[in-house]
Amino acid sequence: MTDDANTFEKVERPRGRQSREWEVFARESAAEPLRHVGSVTADDRETAHEQATTLFEDPVALWLTPAEAVARYTDPALRPGETA
């Protein structure tokens, strides 16, 4: 990690294949933080929810957002082909 958050760079490359990618966040119990647990590929929100529910059986909370709605700012040191 670099020290200065202002050096983070926005990752603007697309995610997803023939249909949309949905970022999935799950909370496994009330005391735990909401965690990013990956992404599912689905044409619409209902299908994305159905897929996520199938994969994550017992979360107390499941959040979904279209991947393109997430602004991803990442330390260049974590990105392939970049040096800090």
Binding site: R15, T41, L55, R79
Partner: peptide, 25 residues
Amino acid sequence: WQRYALGNVRDRPFSAIWEDESNPI
């Protein structure tokens, strides 16, 4: 199994994603 992804190597290295067992699956 292309309809589910753990993460993306543009966000963090493959090695970090593959070692992250906070992912329940």
